[in-house]
Lab assay of single mutants.
Amino acid sequence: ATNIVGKVKWYNSTKNFGFIEQDNGGKDVFVHKSAVDAAGLHSLEEGQDVIFDLEEKQGKAYAVNLRIK
Rank of each mutant, 00 (worst) to 15 (best):
Q58T: 06
S34Y: 15
N24I: 11
G40L: 07
A63Q: 00
V29N: 02
V8L: 05
V29E: 01
E55W: 08
V29P: 00
L44P: 02
K7Q: 08
A61T: 13
Y11I: 03
F30P: 03
V31P: 00
N12R: 14
K60G: 12
D23Q: 13
E45C: 04
I20D: 00
L44M: 05
D23L: 08
T2N: 07
Q58Y: 13
K9M: 05
G25A: 08
F17V: 03
K7Y: 15
F52H: 02
K9L: 11
V5C: 04
L41T: 05
S43V: 13
V8I: 12
E45N: 09
I20W: 00
N65T: 05
I20S: 00
N3G: 10
G25H: 07
V64Y: 13
N3R: 08
S13D: 11
N12C: 04
F19R: 02
K7V: 09
G47H: 12
N3S: 10
T14M: 14
L44G: 01
D53P: 00
D28H: 10
N16W: 10
V64C: 04
I4L: 12
V50Q: 00
V36P: 01
N12P: 02
K9S: 05
T2R: 15
K15Q: 06
A38L: 11
V31K: 00
F17Y: 10
L66V: 14
G59L: 14
F30E: 02
V36Q: 02
F17H: 08
V36I: 10
Y11Q: 01
H32S: 08
G25W: 12
I68V: 09
N65Q: 05
K60V: 11
H32P: 04
V50M: 06
Y11R: 01
S43G: 14
E46G: 08
S43Y: 13
V29Q: 02
L66C: 02
D49N: 15
L44E: 01
D37M: 13
G59I: 05
F52M: 06
L54S: 06
K7W: 07
E21V: 15
E56Q: 13
I51R: 09
G18A: 02
W10L: 07
E56F: 13
